[in-house]
């Protein structure tokens, strides 16, 4: 299908690459369909572009590699909603907030997006583990360097 976006113009996306978020994202409950767009080669960052709102796009990233010791138990109700058959079908992406000073970039570890890849569905999950919604991805020490 043809996608219209404010950031990337118009382009074609195969229907089977569309991800369905039946509950939307928290605060964006009406936005149900997204596509993941790569950014750069080997970059952990992706754009999560809304299919229906050209202006709605988020930066998401795989948390591992950027955060140490990130682990959580997928809550039972989320497992049910995502219809999880095997854990290896799942992929975790976290939303990234880039402020004016990019050194202060944070990642939301408390509300990760969990995708069920074979089914092309996803859900923003609130995990029970004690992680921050604003986890800095660059260490302070190197910020002063």
């Amino acid at each position: 299908m043809k996608l219209e976006t404010t950031r990337f113009g118009e382009f074609e996306v195969p229907e089977d690459e569309i991800l369905e978020f039946p509950e939307g994202l928290i605060g964006f409950e009406k936005e149900r369909r997204f596509v993941l767009l790569p950014t750069q080669e080997k970059s952990p960052f992706f754009w999560l572009q809304s299919v229906d709102d050209p202006d709605l796009a988020f930066i998401v990233s795989e948390p591992w590699g950027l955060v140490e010791d990130y682990e959580f138990q997928l809550p039972q109700e989320s497992k049910k909603k995502l219809d999880v058959k095997e854990e290896k079908d799942l992929r975790v992406l976290c939303l990234v907030v880039i402020p004016e000073d990019p050194q202060k970039t944070t990642m939301n570890l408390k509300g990760p997006l969990v995708l069920n890849l074979p089914q092309r569905t996803g859900k923003q999950v609130i995990i029970n583990e004690n992680f921050s919604t604003k986890h800095p991805i660059f260490k302070e020490a190197s910020a002063s360097a």
Binding site: R7, I26, G27, A57, F58, V96, K110, G111, Q124, T133
Partner: peptide
């Protein structure tokens, strides 16, 4: 989480380039 999502949606391509 809602607030963070709203902040996250304001990202532009230049912001991404800056962190890359």
């Amino acid at each position: 989480i809602q607030e963070e999502n709203i902040k996250a949606r304001k990202t532009e391509r230049v912001n991404l380039e800056s962190i890359q």
